[in-house]
Amino acid sequence: SKDTIRINGIDIDVKDLHEEWKRLVEEALKRGDEELAIELLERALKE
């Protein structure tokens, strides 16, 4: 798994994120759902 995830052309540092969150965000991006990916990231970062 990578340490960054690219959303809207912005590389976001996710190395401190739990693997499960990372996977969910990557799944959302694979489906092209950037809005969901951002929402998941925000939730993950609050934890």
Rank of each mutant, 00 (worst) to 15 (best):
L41T: 04
H18Q: 09
A44W: 11
D16W: 13
A44R: 01
D3F: 00
L40M: 09
D11L: 08
I7T: 02
E26H: 10
E35Y: 12
I38N: 07
E39T: 12
E39V: 14
L40N: 01
I12W: 15
K2P: 15
E19A: 05
L41I: 14
V25K: 00
D16K: 10
L17N: 01
E26S: 07
E42R: 08
L36C: 08
I12N: 02
R43Q: 13
K30L: 11
G9C: 06
I12S: 02
A44L: 09
E27G: 04
L24P: 01
E27Q: 09
S1R: 08
K30H: 12
T4K: 09
K2E: 13
L36E: 06
E39C: 13
E42I: 08
E34Q: 14
E27M: 06
A37S: 01
A44V: 04
D13S: 12
L29N: 01
K22T: 14
T4D: 04
K15V: 06
E39K: 15
L36A: 12
R6M: 09
L29Q: 02
A28N: 00
E35K: 15
L40S: 01
I12V: 11
I12C: 07
I10A: 09
D13I: 08
I10M: 12
D13P: 08
K15L: 09
E35A: 15
G9P: 02
E19K: 04
L36V: 06
H18W: 07
E19F: 08
L36K: 11
K22D: 06
E34P: 12
R31H: 12
V14E: 02
I5T: 02
W21F: 11
R23D: 13
K15T: 14
G9Q: 05
T4L: 13
D11V: 09
E26N: 11
W21A: 15
R43F: 04
L40K: 00
K46L: 13
I10C: 10
L41H: 01
E35I: 14
R31T: 10
I10V: 12
I5Y: 01
I7G: 02
S1H: 13
K30R: 12
R43V: 06
I5A: 03
A37I: 05
S1E: 11
I38R: 15
K46E: 06
E19I: 05
K2S: 13
I12P: 01
D16L: 12
K22M: 12
W21Y: 13
R23M: 10
S1G: 13
E35R: 14
E19Q: 05
K46R: 14
T4Y: 07
E39P: 00
L41W: 04
V14R: 02
A37D: 00
G32D: 04
G9F: 05
I12Q: 04
R43W: 03
N8Y: 02
I5G: 02
A44P: 00
V25T: 00
I12K: 04
